[in-house]
Design a protein around this nucleic acid. Sequence first.
DNA 1: GAAATATATTGAGGCAGTCTCAACTTGGCA
DNA 2: TGCCAAGTTGAGACTGCCTCAATATATTTC
Lengths: 194, 194
Amino acid sequence: MTTTGPAPQRKMRADARRNYERLLAEAATVFTEHGVEASLEEIARRAGVANGTLYSHFPTRQALLEALLRDRMRTLSNTARDLLDHPSAGEALIIWARAAMVHTMVYRGLATSLMRSIEDETSQLHAACQAVLAAGEQLLNRAQAAGTVRGDATASDLYALINAVAWAGEQTSPAQGERLLSFGIDGMRPATDS
Amino acid sequence: MTTTGPAPQRKMRADARRNYERLLAEAATVFTEHGVEASLEEIARRAGVANGTLYSHFPTRQALLEALLRDRMRTLSNTARDLLDHPSAGEALIIWARAAMVHTMVYRGLATSLMRSIEDETSQLHAACQAVLAAGEQLLNRAQAAGTVRGDATASDLYALINAVAWAGEQTSPAQGERLLSFGIDGMRPATDS
DNA sequence: GAAATATATTGAGGCAGTCTCAACTTGGCA
DNA sequence: TGCCAAGTTGAGACTGCCTCAATATATTTC
């Protein structure tokens, strides 16, 4: 499993880089097991370093999360761009929204972090979240232009919807998340004046 | 503000009852300020009792929450029953769902507790949550019979939807919660075969 | 290759929170 | 009044967060 080097700043000392990677790897498994609120001490312990080392590499939990999600979130944004070429604007939106929901469910508690980060511009995750939101907006706009989605739905609505259904999914079951997403997207259809 | 006596077990000693009420009152304000994950020590401190006293009255955070929400949740269930007489089945469902969402937003973090409690039958809140879910189910069934809501929507869907939009609302703004709720309910309409 | 230097790591310590329980009040009945 | 069941207390064991002076190590320089 070759990962793209997480590439923090250039030229780290060899031992530092080793610990950095080790910490990231352990963080991934610990977050998977216990969610994003897992003990940072446990991550350090498992990585075989003192907790101070963890804090020196990742001053906050958010910073650690950011490093862990960087690639994944970039991918999500790129996927949105690619889907702009999809023949059906409406379908493209649905496909992407589903992918975004799945992404948000990798770690328990992630939806909360991502939702908080879009509001809080001091968050290390803020930029990545904004990029995702902007990517979604493109797909949304196209679907609106195609008449598949109500004109008054906003990118914030879409972002909130995705996170809310991911949250529901992580609380109960992924299937429940999927169901709510379907309802939510359907509800964004233009009103049929019956 | 006369409240219905929270009535734990019969015949408490006078000082015990006094502390019990005091704790509940302080819990309400502290939860309002800091959400349901607020420090229990602070509640005890503010109530002017030792933390052990808090734990003796409310062995878990959930127990405290249950006592705090008991009346409110009963009311919500009753409201649903009353709304069964509403002329429009569809409107009745919407009105109730909105009320349930507002209820879920009284304390930050409550949506998470309520969502967890419906799954976890050992939770002190489980029974109250089930009652709310059952109450919603009645309204849902009527709306389905009236053809206003898809037949395949379940009470669990409704419960999850309400909690998910309340969660979104507490993360961003109540207005955002309202918007998502509208989308969700709209999406539960029977498919118009265009 | 050794000294000098910049870079990392360590872990104890201060803080806050949860929860428990043995020792101690104190309310209320006989 | 005196007794004892019921209630309260708060120190203490635990876990977690985060900091920072002391220490160790990689890399550069000569």
